[in-house]
Design a protein around this nucleic acid. Structure first.
Length: 609
RNA sequence: CAGGGUGUAGCUCAGCUUGGUAGAGCGCGGCGUUUGGGUCGCCGAAGUCGGAGGUUCGAAUCCUCUCACCCUGACCA
């Protein structure tokens, strides 16, 4: 017997479900998605960063989940479900009980045992795998779950975009090797494709960017960002090549630099009281930030000295890049502790590049835009203001060669390197002559190559084919399901309400009969039509409320159902209904004969429903 | 965590300065009216004024403490 391949749609009456729409959004809602999901009766706030998902929202979430599920299964992953409640010992094992800090929701049971509500499940799944996988023959494996996650955010905000409790799909893959068949790269690439497929099928406009792997560790990482101006994250993109990366990761193309240039005047020390930041000094000295040198103090992780990072006043130093540029001698670096740095002789807040001369074991890293003796645009020597290495004092007319001397040529002590965050207008690292563009986005997916961080920490090693015990190599892959719903609203709405893409709309079609008494022609036609549409796979919402037309139209627009079929006297007299797509704001709608409606809707839906 | 702000009816808010019977609009219930873009009219239900303590004859209002929530920043798979 063949398996039925046609999905029968669902029919729901507005009056028999819960869709509490409202004219006003709660005052605390600012983000469009927060306002519209609240007004549209999708969500209600229960506590800070904690929400009810009402029937409409739950339908959307389940549709997103289903798409993700299909793509994950198609990519060879298997679904399981792990507990949200996790004994603290598991997080202690990898040090993340500390690393996650207050972000971890902690609780204590009646016996005084500590537990945490899972923010993510690397430890839990590694613990599981450690117990059940004992041979390389069982790998590779890719396991995922869709589940509620908990993070005690310092500041939940923007409705569903940053919650303390949210729905997430997290997947973990396990391998004996990185390259080749069954390796990490193969799974990573499969996940990359599954993510592209998932977000495309959801109808999202998104960009894939290269990303830092962050505190989770690992070696490579991509973020999937929904494009929208209200996004929290800035991404940079090369228009010539399509290269895209987030601010932390984005490389900057070649920038010419040279310390050579005549002084603009004698070095002048100026008393600058109460000027802790660049902005204050800039105002006080009447010097624009692009003419100032910002010098930050980093400490080597091994304690064997310091790294000074010099960037232009209007630029931000990038810790990851500083780390990379100072690599080799002494390993990783971290922002210096203020007390410690002061004790070593740095006048924190007033440090100049010259501090590299006076404090031993100090490497000076200079960003190319700061390493300028000549102002190229103006064709004359650069004017620089900098710290005076003395509390409440700065200097004017800083000149690299005069102030630093021969040490500039010593590559063990002074290096010029890309050490700042990229900005719009910076040269592209991939195409000469092209400039990076800045866009805003919301992160909805993130994939990582973890390597052996967790398997090492938790002792998950098995024998390979050569009888050698090796740590299992891992990858992990997340999708914020509830955030995806919210970012879709951010991306797709207008003044009247939400405009859902068809694949994740709670209902494909809303039928709006003008009269709703059970024996009214409009209501009878609505029921008949709903049945035929459902048989073709459409989910149909019938607005059977005894409300004025204006109210129904406003609500239909607000909740964002892609297709509206209106049944009024005029249309019925011609055996027709009025067909209107939500995304067409201007059009009046078209009259469609009753027996052609299903076909018209199918055409509007394309091949996807 | 730092700075700022708000808590009064289901929602949006007024009242607080200058203490004296707790209000409006939307929503909700009823009646009538209207019926293609949030009709109109009348009637009605609805609030321990976030909580505790204090000052006072009397506190939504003044004082102290506390709780919750929001915004900006920092933080952030």
């Amino acid at each position: 017997m063949p398996i039925s391949t046609v999905r029968r749609g669902e029919i729901v009456s507005w009056s028999r479900t819960l869709i509490p729409t409202a004219k006003d959004a709660p005052t605390d809602a600012e983000a469009p998605s927060h306002k519209l999901l609240s007004r549209g009766g999708y969500i209600r706030r229960v506590a800070a960063g904690v929400y009810d998902y009402l029937p409409l929202a739950w339908r959307v979430l389940r549709k997103i989940e289903q798409i993700v599920r299909e793509e994950m299964n198609g990519a060879g992953a298997s679904e399981l479900l792990m507990p949200a409640l996790t004994p603290i010992e598991l997080f202690a094992e990898t040090g993340r009980a500390e690393a996650y800090g207050p972000l971890l929701f902690r609780l204590e049971d009646r016996h005084g045992r500590e537990a945490a509500l899972g923010p993510t499940h690397e430890e839990v799944i590694t613990e599981l795998m450690r117990g059940v996988v004992s041979s390389y023959k069982q790998l590779p494996l890719n396991l995922y779950q869709i589940q509620t996650k908990f993070r005690d955010e310092f500041r939940p905000r923007a409705g569903l975009l940053r919650c303390r409790e949210f729905i997430m799909k997290d997947a973990y893959s396990f391998h004996m090797n990185v390259e080749g068949k069954g390796g990490l790269n193969e799974a990573y690439d499969a996940m990359y494709r599954a993510y592209v497929n998932s977000f495309t099928r959801c109808g999202l406009d998104f960009t894939v960017v290269e990303a830092e792997s962050g505190p989770i560790g690992g070696s490579a990482s991509h973020e999937f960002m929904v494009n929208c101006e209200s996004g929290e994250d800035t991404i940079l993109r090369c228009p010539a090549t399509g290269y895209a990366a987030n601010v932390e990761k984005c490389e900057i193309g070649e920038r010419p630099h040279s310390f050579e240039g005549e002084p603009t005047g004698p070095l002048e020390v100026v008393h600058t009281p109460d000027c802790p930041g660049i902005e204050d000094v800039s105002r006080f000295l009447k010097v624009k930030p692009p003419n100032m040198l910002k010098t930050l103090v980093f400490k080597r992780a091994d304690g064997a000295g310091w790294v000074l990072a010099v960037v232009r006043g209007d630029h931000d130093a990038n810790e990851g890049k500083v780390k990379a540029a100072s690599g080799g001698a002494g390993g990783a670096v971290a922002m210096a502790d203020e007390k410690e740095a002061k004790a070593a002789g740095f006048a924190i807040g007033y440090v100049s590049p010259r501090a590299a001369l006076s404090v031993p074991n100090t490497l000076l890293l200079v960003d190319p835009d700061a390493a300028q003796g000549m102002d190229r645009a103006k064709g004359k020597p650069s004017f620089w203001a900098a710290g005076a290495d003395r509390h409440d004092h700065h200097v004017k007319h800083f000149n690299w060669q005069r102030e630093m001397g021969a040490v500039l040529k010593d590559h063990h002590r002074v290096r010029v390197a890309d050490i700042r965050n990229a900005m719009a207008g910076d040269p592209s690292p991939r195409a000469p002559g092209a400039a990076l563009e800045a866009k805003r986005g919301i992160e909805v997916g993130h994939i990582f190559k973890l390597g052996t961080k967790y398997s090492d920490a938790m002792g998950f090693a098995i024998l390979d084919e050569k009888q050698e015990k090796r740590s299992v190599i891992m990858g992990c892959y997340g999708i914020g399901v509830s955030r995806t719903m919210a970012s879709c609203v951010e991306m797709s709405h207008d003044a009247d309400g939400i405009v859902w893409p068809l694949p994740i709309a709670p209902f494909h079609i809303i039928i709006t009969p003008m009269r709703v008494e059970p024996d009214a022609p409009a209501m009878k036609a609505a029921c008949e039509l709903a049945g035929r549409l459902a048989a073709s796979g459409f989910d149909v919402l019938v607005d059977d409320r005894d409300e004025r037309p204006g109210v129904k139209f406003k609500d239909a627009d607000l909740i964002g159902i892609p297709i509206r079929l209106t049944l009024g006297d005029k249309a019925l007299a011609e055996h027709s209904v009025e067909f209107k797509e939500r995304r067409d704001r201007e059009s009046k709608g078209e009259l469609v004969k009753m027996d052609a409606v299903v076909e018209r809707c199918l055409r509007a839906a394309g091949s996807v429903k």
